[in-house]
């Protein structure tokens, strides 16, 4: 028994390690490429060890950007992405917390109708409703603005649904105890519901931040000015420069930098994130 168990452990670890290598290797190559001069990558003889151009490449892309690709300095794009991703994540969480609160705890006419209508919009992601949404956004004069980037992506049936399920696992007695303790709806929301959904909020924040960070189509449509360009758009632009060879080392440096904020969010929220996805006890 013990022997086969050990074999199983080794096998499991081997598979996991292979998986990690498969995922990490391209990232490593990207990092290596970003530290060599541009020609090295194109010569096809990229070494697997970092070169000596790291500081030059990164400071160039961060500070000045790529003129020929008409990409603004990278920090601008990073900042834009950050604002958009944060806006979407926080906005979605705020709105869906409130709507789930209303649906679960208040008895109003057409409550279930409201819930099912929200639920049905699950079938209408941004890509499906992109033309009418563009029309509305344009009419509101929100093209080339942060609200234009953020607002249309905020409504979220998924998050509303998730919070509804979370709230429904909170025992009724807790609600009643807080009523006896004199907590009105607002107090109950902030003192009891929010803290009890903390881990779920964190998990959702991670998922939504990455969702927002990775948006491509919507920012591409809605922004024409460079100062609103996001990083994901930027990478794409750099690759498709007209009449010129792509500057792969710069593209790779951009890609590496674009990885950092989501990575940071995941790592810093990892503990809560895992608990939010697995914890059932309230």
């Amino acid at each position: 028994m013990a022997g086969s168990n050990r074999l199983l452990t080794i096998l499991a670890h081997a598979i996991l390690i292979i998986g990690v290598i498969v995922v990490l290797f391209p990232i490593w190559v990207a990092f290596v490429a970003s530290t060599h001069p541009g020609e090295t990558f194109l010569s096809g003889e990229l070494s697997l060890w970092p070169g000596n151009q790291m500081i030059e490449n990164y400071s160039l892309i961060l500070g000045k950007g790529m003129k020929i690709a008409s990409a603004p300095p990278l920090w601008v794009m990073l900042l834009n992405s950050l604002i958009m991703a944060m806006g979407i994540a926080i906005g979605k969480i705020f709105i869906s917390l409130l709507s789930a609160f209303a649906i679960v705890y208040f008895n109003f006419r057409f409550r279930m109708t409201a819930f099912w209508m929200i639920f049905i919009t699950l079938m209408l992601p941004v890509e499906v409703r992109i033309l009418p949404t563009y029309e509305v956004t344009a009419n509101l004069g929100l093209l080339n603005s942060y609200p234009g980037l953020i607002l249309p992506l905020i409504a979220s049936a998924t998050a509303t649904f998730l919070f509804r399920q979370v709230f429904m696992t909170i025992p009724d007695e807790l609600t009643e105890a807080s009523r006896i303790d004199g907590a009105g709806p607002i107090k109950f929301f902030f003192d009891i519901l929010m803290p009890l959904s903390r881990t779920n909020i964190a998990a959702l924040f991670v998922i939504l931040f990455i969702y927002g960070w990775n948006q491509y189509l919507w920012p591409l449509l809605i922004t024409t000015e460079d100062r609103y360009a996001t990083i994901v758009m930027g990478i794409k632009r750099m690759v498709e420069v007209a009449d010129s060879i792509p500057q792969w080392h710069m593209v790779m440096a951009t890609a590496i930098l674009a990885l950092i904020p989501p990575l940071f969010v995941v790592i810093s929220m990892q503990k809560l994130f895992v608990r939010g996805l697995t914890e059932t006890e309230k």
């Binding site: 025992p171 007695e173 807790l174 009643e176 105890a177 807080s178 009523r179 006896i180 303790d181 004199g182 907590a183 003192d191 009891i192 803290p195 009890l196 903390r198 309230k282």
Partner: peptide, 28 residues
Amino acid sequence: PASRKIAMVFQNYALYPHMTVYNNMAYG
């Protein structure tokens, strides 16, 4: 309920899980 000057003890206690014992007692 809050203005009736009553206090209730529930079967499953219904303590606020995220608050310390002190805060549970102090919340009302």
